[in-house]
Design a binder for these strands. Structure first.
Lengths: 396, 396
DNA sequence: CTTCTTTGTCCTGTGAGTGGAGAAAGTTGG
DNA sequence: CCAACTTTCTCCACTCACAGGACAAAGAAG
């Protein structure tokens, strides 16, 4: 099948495409209710979109008390790819133009193997999804990497946990291989986009997404748009000091949040507790699996292990401490907690909430929900698809 | 004289007014170079602005190698008022439409006397400026208050240091009295606007302004626009924890930045040091003035007093600690330090810089200037004038 | 079957804006 | 002082986006 290469010719068309993406198939009349254009003008623009092939006719709508309206929808053959490169695994998903996930695979992998190896992995995963009949080709791809990105160029910069990736032309390379436009962003920003598109943040304009995985990062959304900062490192909260004179961190300082609470830190502390005999539960799991992860701590806590619970609470306290500062500063309308460690669930959330509500001023916390992300591991890939879709569905 | 009541009729006119405000008198041809409109269209819009009286002809420009162009400028009779209500004093200034200060008065006053008393004060100050022949009336006014504001309504909300101001209809009341449009904002946001308009932040789009006065606050500018947060309390960093289990703060928590470093905290610590005999210099000043202020500490430090210097350094360290977190999170292109305490000058700045550059990651600090504000006590009133000017010089 | 409502199409009018032709006003070099 | 070149301003014709009305098509309700 021939890939779609058209782009909206003007702001009206872009708006219509976005409405069809976010609202699904829609009648011409209903679109008219949403766009503030005369019927004649609307008809012209819809017809032009039909000509480009981005939009297709889709039968008749139910009557609203008079003549039935013609339905239109985004071309169901359009395919986007969302890639989410984590520190320890890669997610790849294929979506339609409405950003519904048609296929999704996850594979463990260490980013530190470098861009070339990871790239091969990603390409083999996209090939697999394509081979399964979900797509004959791709119209766009979004990709998230676990570190700061020079957004306009689509290139990672100085990523501490990704040696070898600095300056690697991710956008260029992936675009070449997949034969479609590509946008690159930080993984946390994509998670924010995902939760905004299809998750808990659908109605909020200013919010924060704190992702606690192997490391810790924060996505910032201002006025509905992701804020990336001057050099693309906004939201890099893992090295904010959470505990004065606390643990030594890889960055050279002491007491960084990431050194006290993150997937890696939690696994380390749990192993320590097991070895020191402070928790039989954790020791058993250590023996059984040959290592400990955040999931083990979650399971131990669920089984009533006090030490595991303490680890979670203490981590939540540190995290809440930092988030409290961010809430005072940023005054968001919502804080979303996500990432691998959210398996710790309500215990973690409760600890964070307690700390934030206690430390920040009432005006900032009064009406502030602090919730877990709704999309789990799909937030990143949905956000990635949304990123490229926003790009393609904007005036050329 | 009749006051101007016209507003720009469209975005082009608004843009032209802003160019004339920020660039001063300008030839029609030069305007044409900046706006991307055909000469014919430009002429039409300029003529319309002349008709409204917002803009007046201003003779002929120098030749650029051919026929001389006609100059235009904003009506020199337009007058804006900028009001900056601090915790302990009030500033009022009158500007022309180019936001040049024509007259400026400052009077000590305690906000805690409540809105009615302060209002009388402000009105008597505007009356005084008017009587001095600077203005026959006002075309707009901006006013800053030392606490959070519900911006759209122009009403202070739950201001901790301003009892009695909660819900007081500042905008409404001042508009009534002055007979012109009024906009209300937080004093720190106005300081940010001031430094953006005429100070150190003219070329930066994302920056922070930390105002250290009686309290501590932070102005946040994102993409050239002031960010106010969901409930108008963004930038309220005075109660971020700077010292775990530190000093008791009025807010009920411990170790808040404001409890450790601010005009009030510094005066308190200096008096303590003087009484405990730790500094002869400060004790002398205490005796001489019957009290100590930040200025005394600055003078003592300048005179070589080690205790005073320590107080400044320690305060700068706490402040830098908090700013370091904000820098990691927000990744600004510039940090401006301002407010009354900036009299402490380079000692303070050095302490802040040391702490920030040490604690934040290189990517965020690599190219980050941390500087003192350029406008001093006029930043607030210029920002206030800029606020109302932005409002009036936008499409109606 | 009649009447009302909704939807879609066609057509004309309007206002924004462009771009070119000249006229007006200057500069520069002989 | 004059001729040739520049810049600026004004006027006019043309294009284009868009609104809004007239009318036809399609359906609902009584």
């Amino acid at each position: 099948m021939r890939r779609m290469t058209a782009r909206p010719a003007n702001a009206h068309q872009a708006r219509l495409l976005q409405l069809l993406r976010d609202g699904g198939p829609n009648s011409r009349a209903q679109l008219g209710d949403q766009v503030d254009l005369s019927r004649s003008k609307l008809a012209v623009e819809v017809d032009r979109l039909l000509e480009t092939g981005l939009v297709v006719a889709d039968g008749l709508a139910a009557s609203r008390g008079g003549r039935r309206s013609h339905n239109v929808r985004l071309n169901p053959e359009l395919r986007f790819v969302g890639v989410d490169i984590g520190a320890t695994s890669v997610d790849v998903a294929v979506t339609n133009a409405e950003l519904e996930i048609l296929g999704h695979i996850n594979q463990p992998m260490d980013v530190r193997e470098g861009p070339v190896a990871v790239f091969e992995q990603v390409l083999s995963m996209t090939a697999k999804l394509r081979a399964s009949g979900l797509a004959e080709g791709f119209d766009g791809a979004g990709i998230g990497v676990p570190g700061p990105v020079r957004f306009p160029e689509g290139v990672p910069v100085a990523p501490p946990i990704m040696p070898g990736w600095d300056g690697f032309p991710v956008r260029e390379a992936l675009s070449q291989e997949l034969g479609c436009p590509v946008m690159v962003d930080n993984d946390v920003n994509l998670m924010a986009l995902g939760e905004q598109h299809a998750g808990v943040a659908r109605t909020v304009h200013d919010f924060l997404v704190v992702k606690i995985g192997t490391g810790i990062g924060c996505g910032i959304v201002v006025g509905g748009d992701v804020y990336r900062g001057t050099t693309g490192s906004a939201g890099d909260i893992g090295h904010i000091q959470a505990v004065p004179d606390g643990r030594q961190c890889a960055c050279g300082n002491r007491g960084c949040l990431e050194a006290h609470f993150s997937g890696a830190a939690l696994a380390r502390d749990a192993a320590e507790a097991a070895e020191q005999g402070r928790s039989a539960e954790l020791a058993n799991r250590l023996e059984a699996n040959g290592g400990l992860s955040a999931a083990d701590v979650a399971a131990a806590a669920a089984a009533g292990d006090a030490t595991a619970l303490d680890l979670i609470r203490e981590g939540g306290r540190s995290t809440g401490q930092v988030i409290a500062g961010l809430v005072s500063f940023f005054n968001p309308g919502l804080v979303v907690i996500g990432g691998g460690v959210t398996g710790l669930g309500h215990n973690l959330l409760a600890a964070i909430r307690t700390q934030v509500y206690r430390q920040s001023l009432p005006l900032a916390t009064g009406n502030l929900p602090i919730v877990l992300g709704e999309l789990g591991p799909t937030a990143g890939v949905i956000g990635a698809a949304r990123l490229i879709s926003d790009h393609l569905f904007s005036p050329a």
